[in-house]
């Protein structure tokens, strides 16, 4: 880091400031408009509105309602894209094998104890984010990313060997991920199956009852809003994101002994 670099960076940030000042003073763009567009207004109005039971999704968190109810198919395809990235890593490291040495080394005892105290707090927070996705800001992806911090902490502090000792294998994680993806599909087509049995009209990714079909997912658990399928989607998404990120971390932290065969396979192909 030379002094010249710092100066150039400082002048760059001043340039950004001057450009934004010009835009603000000339009035090209109104920053933070108080007027909401009519589409956004309708989302805000209908996302938790028991008097219009054909349009609502009983979700207090509007972002969750939009992501999993009003555009559920989009989000489902995003989840499958994450799966595709994991498969890409697998093809890159084709032929690796996970060897268990059963000698976890890791850092010193003080660090391990501190990590042990923190991990339950992180688990509780992640589960709270994911299962309260319909009530407070957050949801499945947020909870899964927070839960994946645990595996990154364990790899950094306890070493990869401890993850093997706890029963984590990358193939098992991928299988769990696939099962959760199937679970998402099952929740999505459940109203379709019920409609097929009862011989009425119904839709894929249907949450609450519509004008021409009376089938609806459970909207309340006792007195807490469950928001129908949004809760189940959030739980499955939590597991999918957690297993996906953990698989990526485990595959990238493989030792040289485990990767030896993968390199041989690559040389054969080249």
């Amino acid at each position: 880091m030379i002094k010249r670099d710092v100066l150039v960076a400082f002048s760059l940030s001043l340039l950004v400031l001057s450009i934004s000042l010009i835009i603000w003073l000339e009035g090209y763009i109104r920053i933070a408009t108080p007027i909401i567009s009519s589409l956004g207004e309708s989302y805000l109005y209908y996302s938790y509105n028991p008097w219009y039971s054909n349009y609502t999704s009983f979700s207090l968190n509007v972002v969750s309602a939009i992501i999993w109810d009003y555009r559920g198919f989009d989000t489902f395809l995003e989840t499958t894209v994450l799966m595709a990235s994991i498969i890409a890593i697998y093809t890159l490291l084709r032929g690796f094998e996970e060897k268990v040495f059963l000698q976890p080394k890791g850092l010193s005892t003080i660090t391990k104890t501190a990590t042990k105290i923190v991990i339950p707090l992180i688990i509780a927070y992640a589960l709270a984010i994911a299962t309260h996705g319909q009530l407070t800001p957050g949801g499945g992806f947020q909870g899964g990313a927070t839960l994946a911090v645990i595996s990154s902490l364990i790899i950094a502090v306890y070493s990869l060997e401890f993850l093997y000792y706890m029963g984590y294998r990358s193939k098992r994680l991928v299988v769990i991920r696939g099962l959760c993806l199937i679970g998402l599909i099952i929740v999505a087509i459940t109203p379709l199956l019920i409609g097929f049995i009862l011989n009425t009209k119904s839709y894929i990714f249907q949450n609450m009852s519509k004008e021409d079909s009376f089938i609806s997912m459970p909207s309340f658990l006792f007195d807490a809003p469950l928001a129908g399928s949004i809760f189940f989607y959030n739980v499955f998404e939590l597991l999918i994101v957690f297993t996906g990120l953990t698989t990526a971390l485990m595959l990238l932290s493989l030792r040289d002994v485990e990767l030896k065969k993968a390199f041989e396979v690559r040389e054969v192909y080249e």
Binding site: V63, I129, P137, G138, G139, F141, Q142, A145, T146, A148, V149, S152, L153, I155, A156, L245, A248, L249, L252, S253
Partner: peptide
């Protein structure tokens, strides 16, 4: 707030470990 909740663990917990590896 939901982007905030996503960005904290991803930028502080996961990305540095991936890049260090």
């Amino acid at each position: 707030p939901d982007l905030f909740i996503t960005y904290i663990p991803v930028s502080v917990g996961i990305t540095p470990l991936l890049l260090f590896l």
